[in-house]
Amino acid sequence: MGHIVAALLWAVWVAVAVGDPVPDPPSHLLSEVLTCQPDPPSLSLSVTLDGRALFWFDFPGSRWNPGIPSLPRWPPELESPQDILPESQLCREILGILGHHLTGRLPEAKGVPILSLFPALPPLSGEPNTLVCLVENVFPPVLDITWSVAGATVTHGVTHGPFVPTSDLTFIRISRISVVPQPGAVYTCTVTSHKDNATMVAYWVAPDTALDEQLGTVLAGAALALGIVLALLGATLALMARRDRNGTGIIPVWAWF
């Protein structure tokens, strides 16, 4: 554990040592966190930068996965699956010892999950999009995320991310679903904690973009009409003022209404 951190820090030290003096860069936090617990997922391992997942280890598949699709594959020489297994076994052994001695003696820490549901792109009727369900303040990292459309459960096009540790000792988890929004369609992200028998729900209703366009056209037309009226009124007032300078008098504006 920590090979990736050590390698990156060494690379940064060498770059600074051989280069010209540079101002202190902004501080960032690169961390590698291994967690183990009695409930599934029993093991999780993430490499994060400022709380954003760079890579996470899939223990059933015994491979590293990128947390950001555009990232290249994990360099196998930094930390191979064989390097991780002894550390994960040690984590389980420590958990067993601590669990045996501390169960019932220390209060169990819990977090109330906070849900956010939003589209990845500005929604357009009939255009493919992705809905993102962001679950924050998760602790312990044990919960299920399900999707439904108009009350019917949906599994096609759904992807679930790992539990990602944060600097405040909680976790976040992201789930995504590929959709083609239809006006008025109701999408639901449901988070369930079977351990606490608790359920939280977030909704997103697809807007009617065609109606928004029509409303925008009407408002633009009304603004244009108002501009023309104000322009005519201004021209009339200017003409009346000119007549007044010629001694012909001026009609009060309120007399027009």
Rank of each mutant, 00 (worst) to 15 (best):
L131K: 03
F171Y: 15
P181K: 02
H100P: 00
I145R: 00
L95W: 11
V229D: 10
V142A: 08
V132W: 08
V135P: 00
A210C: 05
H101L: 11
L230E: 06
G157W: 02
A152E: 14
P119R: 10
P181W: 01
L134W: 11
F163G: 01
F163I: 00
E127G: 03
Y187P: 00
F139W: 12
P183N: 09
P183V: 03
G151S: 09
S193I: 01
S178D: 14
F171S: 00
L131T: 02
S193E: 13
G111T: 04
A198M: 08
P162H: 06
V112G: 06
P165R: 02
L230I: 04
V180L: 12
S148Y: 03
L98F: 12
G151Y: 07
V154N: 02
L102Y: 15
P119T: 10
L211N: 08
D168S: 12
H194S: 10
L224G: 06
P165Y: 04
H156G: 07
S167D: 13
S116M: 12
C189D: 02
L230D: 08
I172V: 14
L143I: 05
P162C: 06
K195L: 08
L115K: 03
S116R: 14
R176F: 06
A206C: 09
H194K: 12
L106N: 08
T130W: 12
Y203N: 11
V149W: 01
A109R: 15
Q182F: 00
K110M: 12
L124E: 13
A198K: 12
T192Q: 11
P183A: 13
L211G: 10
A222P: 01
L224M: 08
D196G: 03
E136D: 13
P128F: 09
W147E: 01
A220I: 01
P113R: 01
V186T: 03
P128T: 06
L219C: 09
V142G: 02
A109C: 15
T146E: 13
V191Q: 02
A206S: 14
E108Q: 15
F163R: 02
V158R: 03
V154Y: 07
C189S: 07
L230G: 05
P165C: 08
P165A: 11
G161V: 03
I174G: 00
P123V: 11
P181H: 04
A150C: 12
V180T: 14
N137Q: 11
P113C: 09
V201R: 07
A225I: 04
V205G: 01
V191G: 01
